[in-house]
Design a protein around this nucleic acid. Sequence first.
DNA 1: TAGGGTAAGTTTTTT
DNA 2: ACTTACCCTA
Length: 666
Amino acid sequence: AIYDSADQKTLMKQVLRELNIDAKVYPPQGILGLIDRAKNRGLPVSRIAALGVEEPLRSIATRAALVYQARLRASDAADFGDLLALAVELLEGTEKPPPPGAQLHEPDPVMGLRRRFQHVVVDEYQDTNPVQNRLVELLSGRAELCVVGDDDQAIYGWRGADVSQILGFPERHRGCQIIRLEQNYRSTGHILGCADAVISKNRGRLGKTLWSELGDGEKVRVITAADEREEATLIAGEVAQHIADGEEPGEIAVFYRTHAQSRAIEEAFGKYGLRYAVYGGLRFFDRKEIKDLIAYLRLIVNPRADLDLERVVNTPARGVGKATVERLQTRALVKGVSLWELLCELPDEADAAQLGKAAVKRLVGFRELLRSLQREAEDGDLGHLAHLVLDRTGLREALSREDSVEATTRLENVQEFVGALVEFTEEHPEAGLADYLEQVSLATDADGQGADVGAVTLMTIHSAKGLEFDHVYLTGMEERVFPHARVLDEVQDGTRHDGLEEERRLAYVAVTRARRHLTMTWVCERRLYGQVAVSRPSRFLAGLPPQHAELMGSRNAAARGRPPPRPAPTRAPAWDDDIVYDDGYEQEARHRRARVDDEPAAEPPRRRRPAAEEGVPLYIGMSVHHRKFGEGEVLGWEGAGHNLKLVLRFPGAGTKTILARYCEPA
DNA sequence: TAGGGTAAGTTTTTT
DNA sequence: ACTTACCCTA
């Protein structure tokens, strides 16, 4: 089993509880972060001390890490960090001389891998961590090795990537040929001018000057909006206009620093009826109902995965409560076996585990359920198996009994999952359940939906690395959003020195994704954690040279002949420890606020073809009635026919997505 | 043990 | 805003 970050957190919480470590003082995420850093450096978790952590965290984290790692292995599980570390371990193992008496004619698959490649090319080499680098070296033992990277685009320092690896490459590979690439074939001149203005403030860089033969192109635009809803609406309106003008949706992208920012944009896109694809974020496979189903499937393959067993032993509720699970855990710990192995020894172990008669009966019932599913799994039809799991476990029953919108959606998600599984079996007829589950653990949305060219792309800047689009909207250009508050605070209290430089490189990456049109937006106030905060424009905006970037006002304001934006501050910026613009920029930017109602680039569709099957006209802004929530306003919709879902805003209950067949015109 | 209610924590970025 | 954790009652 591959444990994702949610699994890791659950496991670590358990470990901390067992070791009587206060999770408030030593947050599980923090310890997991140390473990990951160790693994990324090729260190065993016992050597967390080598990361330079202070006592008492050092010894506490080490203790927790050792138990965590033991627990992983006992469950036949690996976390993401292990995947690389284990691969390196495997490949390094062949350094040892063969044991005496080894069969020489027996081909060694590992040695085969190490000798297999004649040419190895690594892209984005600036973002590799030491373990990845080691892997490259092991696989390229007898190959010609070519690495490509840009020190200005190093944005993964926080997960152990080490730029010095690309900088030190010539040292480690004497006589290698260095090719500098300074001609840019992607972006027009003004965009490159802005990119250069942003990145040139960094100290720790080799330095280069990009040039392009594509001409100046259009100036980069900076737009001020009142809040994130207006920001989103402005962008949606423009995007709708672009598409109406015949631009490819796949050539348009909206970037943000954090996933949390996607919501407002998604809502606005929904209103405009724009198709979009969100990359990363809460993935389909992270949904509860899917995780439950996957946990059952994983258990069938690997019943020793304790975490999965704990997850589903009482899902849906079958009378196995917290107390029972705790007794099981205690006993399993004492015996040094997995929960599943303990279950297999019931009822013999009942007394030793202090389990009552009722509990034993239910647990044995669960055990037999799982065993029956394991027998079915041998036949190999995965789609059939998934349906059996849904039926025999009662998952489907539990979801359909609950007559809420959420439950209906969950049921649909589950169906979608089974559909995907069937599709997988058709494409890989010889693959087993284990193969599918592995694919699920490692899949990202970017892998799965890459082909969706009919949709506008919404993603974090990190995900955008390596991609390019004709139109790029870079949103949330505000202090404490981008650069992110966490980084600013860390720099402030000295925890991390180079954090701001990495944010700046991230800004550079974002800017250089655009081929022809780049628009950056910032908002005067933003709602975060349910609270409204007044914001200031990002320092990355303020440094943009006026000859390449213009502050846009609303069109009406421009028509009335407002003065041109003030020149950018001439004062030499203090080194990145402070906001580096004077108030003039901020005032001008606020003054130039674009209002959606002035003259939106495109109107949201008022009235569209009836989407409901019975010909009830459906339009944005329409009033509908719902049995439970009362009267609400239609903000948008998705799906069609029987599955048509309305996005509704209720005065009392907020925004909900509800199947249209549960609503009627008010 | 289940389920409802309230209090508290959460969010940086990814494989 | 939204989720999880914890406590209480039936």
